[in-house]
Design a binder for these strands. Structure first.
Lengths: 360, 360
DNA sequence: CTGAAAGCGCTAACAA
DNA sequence: TTGTTAGCGCTTTCAG
């Protein structure tokens, strides 16, 4: 039984009158601030409950905090990001903070619009996931509002970072494939030209990790990188190119699971089987990698922990605005599934997956 | 070259002084409000540009609007929702409005927390996608802030709705399967007990549409519904049950693509092939349904249009708070792919897909 | 420990 | 058409 139309919102003034105290007192109770006796707190709490009062965050922001954390995800379609988000929301569960997401931002322009919108709405802190903006812009943002940058390497004195070790992840995968007996291991990367991004973006580091690992295994001669994009289409095109090689690779390390999907499609079209004729691996261990009909070998990034750490750092920075910046680097793990196996003509061994039939 | 730390934000007062006008004048220009001469507008605009002023949405909200639209998505993992979101953001592209998303809300409690948070942050309007809260609660929300409910059937005088015709979608799919020659067509539904939800939630209407279509085709005897949940696990369990039937169905209509994934897994485990031994279809035409190795027959809901309509209605309601409520119902389309074909022992026909090999 | 009063940045009445 | 003046709901000095 709601009133026909809310005539007026319950305000701090109503609570103060009801509890027969000052608005200051109510404010203090709301913020658990120093300077209110237990009796006063109890009184105020009762009044709050009786009136069903909720503080108006929009107004709080004008003087203090809005208790809102803004999270910018570059692409809501990427099934890896929800994991990060869970890590974020779980840690914020029992706090007064609320998370709001900026919608899919592709490119610097959209990214700027969203971050500005968040700043203009008085958010107390920002988590930027894999932003593409130049570092100078990130530092500007961080100078205005506490900021944690996730999934982008490179330090900054003004913002904290949480990353997963992409070089190590690539090495895990290359090691896995080499352990199965593969030598001709190709990689499909997301094309990158901007020098800062080459140094800081995960995709570039995966490619670098691939190269390092290949060299470390004495397979420097076999290094074979195709530059497309982290999309299904990019994987399809990259695989087409690799399949056209005079001597085609026996394994493909796609820089992301979605890329691997395109590879699987191209391989099937070519009448080849996975992993019989060719092993395929992805990165991110997204939800569909685990789907029965796909069962893609991938690298897991512990998204939940990434999100958890990001919020932890953010809350710390909100509390202490100019503490030295922190970099957290987490370690990925390998998730072998059925798309990787020893190369054709090589006997099975302990590390191999179960064979699967041609997919088409 | 940013200043080391923003000393103070540029405010409307700064702009007014710079332009040598009153703050009211600036405010009017910002809102394109009546009562400012072209010269004044030009002067103010220049000052705004020169100072790089951006209005502080948090403060605007205290008196007027925040120019923020809140969108609540029940599950960010469901790949269907980004389509709706695109429809929303595209239409808002050239307006002053900004979209902010509430993160994954499972269950009424989380849903309430998110909607309250949005209201408390002064959002101008809400789009609730497939909310599970009781209708009374939705109406309460709508009485406080302009609201459009998406993906939930049932009218209300206080909020507008946008739905896709789930009954028709189910009929499309059943018709497709029957056209291929299937008679034993089973359905896996999301279990629902709450009476309101049985009447209003899409999952319940899909099951109802399935029943109606079966009856309409003279297949009432063959109606076979398994109640699990709209998850991969639910699909897996449902399929296990169906495969254990004395005479197992030749086709399974899963209530959602993710359910179909579980079905595919169970079918493969049983050593059966899709669609050779059994046809499988999903609903939502999510991104992974189109993935090469899956290629799932599904029903497309035109998510973009859903989002587009939702925002259109919302903006209209923000403008005119108490206009009569509107219900928009869109029509789904069938997307046949390779997981559906004529039942075993029946000759191929024009509508059949290409056969695929057993998946395991 | 408590409360009165000022003011955050903006918009909306109202007066000029 | 313009500017002046009150607030919006809350937090924050700063007296008591």
């Amino acid at each position: 039984m709601e009133p026909p139309a809310s005539p007026r919102r319950v305000t701090i003034v109503d609570v103060a009158q009801h509890a027969r105290v000052s608005t200051t007192a109510v404010s203090k109770v709301l913020r658990n601030a120093y300077g209110a006796s237990p009796e006063m707190r109890a009184k105020v709490r009762r009044a709050i409950d009786e009136l069903g009062y909720r503080p108006y965050a929009a107004a709080r922001g004008l003087r203090g905090q809005t208790y809102t954390i803004g999270v910018m995800l570059p692409d809501i379609r990427n099934p890896f990001f929800p994991e990060i988000l869970d890590g974020i929301t779980d840690r914020l569960q029992d706090t007064d903070y609320q998370v709001l997401l900026g919608p899919g931002c592709n490119g610097e322009k959209e990214e700027a619009r969203v971050t500005e919108a968040m700043i203009d709405r008085g958010m107390d802190g920002l988590v930027l996931v894999a932003p593409v903006s130049p570092r100078s812009h990130l530092e500007h943002i961080a100078s205005v509002v506490p900021t944690v940058v996730v999934g982008r390497h490179g330090h900054s004195p003004v913002y904290d970072t949480v990353t997963d070790d992409d070089v190590a992840g690539a090495a895990l995968l290359v090691g896995h494939l080499a352990g199965l007996g593969h030598r001709r291991i190709a990689h499909i990367e997301h094309h990158e030209t901007d020098p800062t991004r080459i140094a800081e973006m995960p995709n570039a580091l995966r490619a670098e990790g691939y190269r390092q690992a290949m060299r470390g295994l004495g397979l420097a001669q076999e290094i074979d990188v195709v530059s497309t994009s982290y999309t299904q289409q990019g994987g399809y095109e990259g695989a087409k190119e690799l399949l056209g090689r005079p001597s085609r690779p026996t394994a493909v390390f796609a820089g992301a699971d979605i890329v691997a999907m395109g590879v699987l499609e191209a391989v099937a079209e070519a009448g080849l089987s996975v992993p019989g004729d060719m092993s395929v691996a992805g990165y991110d261990n997204t939800a569909f990698a685990a789907l029965g009909p796909i069962s893609l070998t991938s690298v897991d990034q512990a998204g939940h922990e990434i999100g958890d750490n990001a919020v932890r750092l953010l809350l710390e920075r909100i509390t202490e605005r100019r503490k030295p910046s922190v970099q957290v680097k987490l370690s990925p793990t390998l998730v072998p599934r059925r798309t990787t196996a020893p190369p054709p003509g090589q006997s099975d061994n302990a590390e191999s997956g179960r064979g699967v039939q041609p997919l088409d």
